[in-house]
Design a protein around this nucleic acid. Structure first.
Lengths: 194, 194
DNA sequence: ACAATAGTAGGTCAACTGTCCTAGTGTTTC
DNA sequence: GAAACACTAGGACAGTTGACCTACTATTGT
């Protein structure tokens, strides 16, 4: 199996198309056209379409983990790091408004397809969950850390879905500010409790 | 075009299959098998697959509006009515855990397909939004009513997505309780302000 | 009663799907 | 320089897709 530049191009193109069109609705022909290679050539790099999906998911897991590690070592406070996560909604807005959250929409689709790689795709959520939990722990929220992590996760997920549906940037901006305010209020409470 | 029982059966079966498998991944053959009629017979009831989708969306709009009117005239307080909405997450959990929120997942899919009926599907969200806004207005939240409505909408939407991904009933239950607590705290604040 | 209409079945059609094969072209290794 | 290998192109394949047609059977209205 190939490990060269073409393979990486295929994964990158598939990643993009799976996000913008959905996994099921993206065909070999679509990916081939994007990479500018012949259809039959795929078999040399990936035996099945599911293999491409697995490679795409692994790629997303790697990139996400890398990003989270970067944030972790950036020197900012845990609170600022959580805000970095929340603000993805704004920085990636031009994509989210058309295609939604890449993580959530893939998990949703694979759930409906009852796909084997569903659990693998969910791991991206887990990556964020564990990282967020870690940040909240560092902020002094020991017991509630996981609950708070899930809360941030579901809040931002919902804002992505509705922002996409209503195509309303102001709403997303307002919700992001509310999330940041909530985060600040939370820290004050934790400091008082000490 | 037919308006009989078969047509209703087709819409009902399509509604169910679009929810469980997704619109794009559901074929004429799937629906035909569910209704127990021949494939070719479809043309008499619906010219295209998109026509079936439109009928399904109209059906969902009707049912949703009917449900909301029922809640409105049930005699309960606005706060209890909002809680009825929130608790859909629990009453429909057995479906949500496998297929997510029917409204959100369809809107997401149609967004990716860049489908003509995307705006029509979004109207279900608008139905809930306007209704929730109305409840908050009745609770005395005049200016913020729409913001609060959107907040409830996005919160529950996120919980549905993550509940589906993690298949975690306890998490959903906890978030529902938190939403109800938040609602109660909100009312107290509004009463104080009067 | 009979003509018009609504509904149904079965099949055809071109286009597309994922998969797989074969022939051929470079590139590396000894 | 020859064998082994990585890679590519183009096409074949069986199956499925949405769409559409025609022939047949109920049902209805007058």
């Amino acid at each position: 199996m190939g490990h060269g530049a073409t393979r990486k191009q295929i994964v990158a193109a598939a990643d993009d198309l799976f996000y913008r069109q959905g996994f099921d609705h993206t065909s070999f022909a679509d990916i081939a056209k994007a990479v500018n290679i012949s259809r039959g050539n795929f078999y040399h790099h990936f035996k099945t379409k599911d293999d491409i999906l697995d490679a795409v998911i692994r790629n997303r897991l790697d990139r996400t983990e890398h990003m989270l590690v970067d944030w972790e070592t950036s020197g900012a406070t845990p609170k600022d790091r959580i805000k970095s996560y929340i603000k993805i909604l704004l920085t990636n807005w031009s994509l989210i408004k058309d295609y939604g959250c890449p993580v959530g929409t893939l998990c949703t689709e694979l759930a409906k397809l009852n796909h084997t790689s569903r659990a693998e795709a969910n791991k991206v959520f887990t990556l964020f969950r564990v990282w967020l939990r870690n940040q909240f722990t560092q902020l002094g929220h020991m017991q509630e850390a996981d609950v708070l992590a899930l809360h941030v996760l579901s809040w931002s997920q919902g804002v992505a879905t509705l922002g996409n549906a209503f195509d309303d940037y102001n709403y997303v901006k307002r919700e992001v500010e509310k999330m940041c305010d909530w985060l600040d209020a939370l820290s004050v409470k934790a400091e008082k409790a000490q």
